[in-house]
């Protein structure tokens, strides 16, 4: 039989399946990012508090998440937690949990950086005109931090999408797994399928992440002043 070559991608519903696989990764990434933002913002603000013990606990969490590779965290939650607690979780649930924990730490650190980089007099002026702590955050700190934060947060989305490619290693059926299935089922008709399929997936990731990175750079340039 002749070699299908690149045509393996459009044969049958292969393209549709690959896209479906990609959607799984992107979905995990987006859900994790949303959870990370929701928890990361308060976490970051807590990290700027004056309470030493509180800061120490936050710091420990951040460093623990950062120093151990995400892959190891996935293993711990996928293999270790069921053994310890008896709770069995599906791969995609584990992924969302791990990436949320990771994302919360990263987002928290971004928030901390943005808040502490604001000049001190901003907060003090707020206090001087009699605003409460909540009002200071609501009207002074948060609006100014958002500008500093938005590019980094969008960057976090691309990092998340790239890192969620790891979920295939704990058995989630995403684009790489679907790619393997396609390659296996077309191994006779198309011996070179793996070159095209993996090349295509490589390209897919690029066309998702590249526009986002470009956008971030534009944003950073515009908001530089």
């Amino acid at each position: 039989m002749q070699d299908l070559g690149i045509r393996v991608l459009i044969e049958g519903n292969n393209l549709y399946r690959l896209m479906g696989g990609l959607l799984v990764t992107v979905k995990i990434a987006l859900i994790s990012v949303i959870i990370s933002i929701i928890f990361g913002i308060p976490f970051g603000i807590v990290m700027t508090s004056k309470n030493k013990l509180l800061r120490l606990v936050c710091r420990a969490y951040l460093e623990a998440v950062r120093i151990i590779p995400v892959m190891v965290w996935l293993f711990i939650f996928y293999f270790g937690v069921p053994k310890l607690t008896g709770i069995h979780l599906a791969g995609d649930v584990v992924s969302v949990i791990v990436f949320s924990i990771w994302g919360t730490a990263e987002k928290g650190d971004l928030v901390r950086g943005a808040v502490t980089s604001l000049p001190k007099h901003q907060k003090e002026s707020g206090k001087a005109i009699g605003l409460t702590n909540v009002q200071i955050y609501r009207y002074i700190i948060i609006p100014q931090s958002v500008r500093r934060l938005l590019p980094a947060t969008i960057n976090l989305v691309t990092r998340m999408i790239k890192t969620t490619s790891l979920v295939v290693l704990i058995g989630v059926v995403e684009v790489l797994k679907v790619g393997q299935q396609v390659i296996e089922s077309f191994v006779l008709q198309s011996p070179s399928a793996s070159f095209w399929v993996y090349g295509f997936i490589f390209f897919l990731y690029f066309i998702i992440c590249y526009p986002i990175s470009l956008f971030v750079r534009k944003l950073e340039l515009r908001w530089k002043e």
């Binding site: 790891l166 290693l169 070159f195 090349g199 690029f206």
Partner: peptide
């Protein structure tokens, strides 16, 4: 730089290890 920063290592490895031998 763009290519390397916008694609995950895992996919790069799969392409190198499983894809390239076919060509």
């Amino acid at each position: 730089i763009e290519l390397s920063r916008n694609t995950p290592l895992l996919i790069q490895l799969f392409f190198l290890y499983y894809g390239l031998p076919k060509v």
